[in-house]
């Protein structure tokens, strides 16, 4: 018997509750590497190529092409309504489920890192990856929209795409926390997530009723209206009566904090079986 073990039997070891930043950084790096590999990124590139393609076709065939209109419709209507939640869903749903399905979660759970911190670190990695995708494609979309417009270099780049990306990233982070939370509770996170996007963020958000204020897309529109001065008739947002910018920011922050906290607690308490017993 080794001296260590002998000593430990007589005198129980005192456990240190500290967590190494190096361990968290490694977990973050591994999570990013996992997220950007495989078909997921390819699907996302294809999805984000759709608005670009639409703009190119419009430039070629539309009788009267207006760069500002095109940018507004694509960046503030199409992308946030469909691509942002889909991007968040594709990445966040796999954040934990991939580790479970590929049975690698064990390697994380047996390390001296609290489970809630594993969850939060993986969430942070997911937000960073999706934010980078969104920023790159938003900037690219602006560039394509204003491709033959002299304003591209003087008025648009770099701040207009960056400000638009900032609003999108805020909404995206909220979406990621919602879908990650769903993925802790069900294996069918993608199906539930799509239902949520279609029913809640799609239908409810467009009905002029109080409940729409609980949707993420509404907060995105509100912040876009108040901060970027974007007004789109389809949003049904009256600048005279719409809530203040701080309301939108606060609601998104609240969504993020609440979903992240519930997700982290649920992840801490849940058992993850890697092997089903015979007959189960």
């Amino acid at each position: 018997m080794s001296a260590n073990v002998r000593q430990m039997i007589n005198e129980p070891i005192v456990l240190s509750r500290g967590v190494s930043p190096s361990a968290l950084f490694t977990l973050f790096r591994m999570s990013v590497a996992r997220l950007i590999r495989g078909r997921r990124s390819l699907v996302l590139i294809l999805l984000f190529s759709l608005p670009l393609l639409t703009v190119v076709i419009a430039q070629m065939y539309a009788p009267r092409y207006d760069a500002a209109d095109a940018a507004r419709n694509v960046i503030f209507l199409f992308i946030p309504q469909t691509l942002l939640p889909l991007t968040a869903l594709i990445f966040a749903a796999g954040m934990i489920q991939d580790e479970i399905e590929e049975q690698t979660l064990t390697y994380l759970l047996i390390r001296p890192i609290p489970r809630w911190l594993i969850y939060v670190t993986k969430l942070a990695a997911t937000v960073v990856v999706t934010a980078v995708f969104t920023t790159v494609f938003t900037t690219l979309t602006y560039a394509v929209c204003y491709a033959s417009d002299p304003r591209l270099k003087t008025e648009i780049l770099p701040w207009v795409p960056l400000r638009a990306s900032a609003v999108m990233i805020a909404a995206l982070t909220a979406y990621v926390t919602v879908f990650a939370l769903i993925s802790v509770f069900t294996r069918r996170a993608v199906v539930v997530g799509i239902a949520y996007i279609v029913a809640f963020e799609g239908a409810v958000a467009n009905i002029e009723f109080m409940i729409r204020q609980y949707t993420i897309i509404y907060q995105f529109r509100l912040i876009s209206l108040r901060w970027l001065d974007i007004q789109i008739s389809e949003w049904n947002l009256n600048p005279a009566t719409a809530p203040a910018l701080s309301d939108g920011v606060l609601n998104l922050a609240l969504t993020i904090v609440v979903c992240m906290t519930i997700g982290a607690i649920a992840f801490s308490r849940r058992e993850f079986r890697v092997k089903t017993p015979e007959g189960a």
Binding site: I13, L15, S16, R17, V19, E102, Q103, T104, T106, Y107, I110, R111, P112, I113, P114, R115, V274, K275
Partner: peptide, 16 residues
């Protein structure tokens, strides 16, 4: 008990 994991090692059964 994450703090205990410093002192234990596991070679899991699954080939993952």
């Amino acid at each position: 008990n994450f703090a205990l994991n410093r002192y234990i090692g596991l070679c899991p059964e699954q080939d993952a």
